[in-house]
Amino acid sequence: MRTFLYFLLFMVLAVVVTILAAILGAEGAWYFAWLIGTAMLVLISAAGGALLDAQEASAAAGRGPS
């Protein structure tokens, strides 16, 4: 039941966001690009940090336990 309510809440949010994005995409294409672009920038940069952790871990594993 709890999951279902959360599902409903997020569905409603998703619909609202879609409608707002459709309006913003028509009237303010650059604003829309900024929103999407900023989110993308932050996530790619965050992923880059996590990737470095993985690179260092695998490099350490390659050298074997010291």
Partner: peptide
């Protein structure tokens, strides 16, 4: 420093293109 540099470099390269 390495982690900060990594994150800033990726953030920066995309932002500069923008």
């Amino acid at each position: 420093a390495k982690r900060s540099l990594r994150m800033a470099a990726l953030f920066g390269v995309l932002a500069t293109i923008g």
